[in-house]
Structures are given as C-alpha cells and as structure tokens.
C-alpha cells in the first residue's frame, strides 16, 4: 500500500493522538456511559489504522508490530480470564466472575467493582485484535500484488 499526500499525513499526525485519547476516555468510562471496552478499543485501533492508511504499509515494520500486538491480545484475554478466576478464588463462593472488589457508589469513576478493570482489558484486546486483522489484510494484499 502506498502512502498518501503530505496534507493527509500531517492531519493524520495531529488527529491520531486525539483519537487514541478519546478511545482511552471511552474505555475508562465504560461502566458509566454508553461504550466501554469494545467501542473504545475500536476507536483506539482506528487511530492506528488511520496512520497505516496515511503513511502506507512498510511490510517488515508491520510484521514486527503484528508480533507485539499478538502478544498483547493473548495477554489481555488471559488477563480477563485471570480476573474471572480470581472471583472464583478470592470471593470464597466458588463462583466464576464473582465480585471480589468493593462496589462503591454508582456514578463515581472508581466504582462497580472489577468491571472497569475488565473494560480496560477488553479495550486492549479489541484494539490489538482489530489492528492485527487490518495489518494482516494489508500484508496479504501487498504480498499478492508483488
């Protein structure tokens, strides 16, 4: 994939961090507002995809990134399972996904027990997953056209 013109590159450079930050915001407020891990993760991934489209894919670099992201993705799912299993162990009730943290008051940023933590993990997983899918397709396409 070839890169785009200088105007697109510059605007992308300015916008990508803002998009990423907005994604982080959506993930962090997942238990209070619409959105959450999945939606926020997609927004964060879109900032990466944006950059790849604007700057064009440089194959060896993308392959390297892909490995790191795969690591993050598996780690995130494992983290999700570990939190779920912690409920099984810590709450003393032998219940999967049991609540083991303080629930707090509804409406505060730090509340809802382990749900914000799960949201962050899901956000990381979705961001990594969607970026991997996009990169894999970009790499495939470049390999075909060569």
């Amino acid at each position: 994939m070839k890169g785009m013109s200088i105007i697109v590159k510059k605007i992308c450079q300015i916008l990508a961090p803002v998009i990423f930050l907005f994604g982080l915001y959506v993930v962090a407020h997942g238990h209070l507002t619409p959105g959450g891990g999945f939606a926020g993760g997609v927004i964060m991934a879109s900032s990466f995809i944006f950059q790849i489209i604007a700057y064009g894919s440089i194959l060896p670099k993308l392959r390297h990134e892909e490995h790191g992201l795969e690591f993050l993705e598996s780690g995130a799912i494992l983290g999700f399972l570990v939190i779920a299993a912690l409920g099984l162990i810590l709450s003393g009730t032998s219940i999967f996904f049991a609540e083991f943290l303080n629930k707090g008051t509804a409406g505060n940023l730090i509340s809802a027990g382990f749900i914000p933590i799960e949201n962050i993990v899901v956000g990381a997983e979705v961001c990594a997953g969607i970026s991997i899918i996009f990169m894999a397709l970009a790499v495939f396409k470049d390999e075909v056209t060569k």
């Binding site: 899918i133 894999a136 397709l137 495939f140 396409k141 390999e143 075909v144």
Partner: peptide, 13 residues
C-alpha cells in the same frame, strides 16, 4: 468477515 476476506485473498493468490 475478516476470516472470509483473508481466505478470499489467499484464494486470489
């Protein structure tokens, strides 16, 4: 969709 597309790209190759 991603799975179908990746298989389609491979088929095209």
């Amino acid at each position: 969709t991603a799975m179908l597309l990746s298989i389609a790209i491979r088929l095209y190759r």
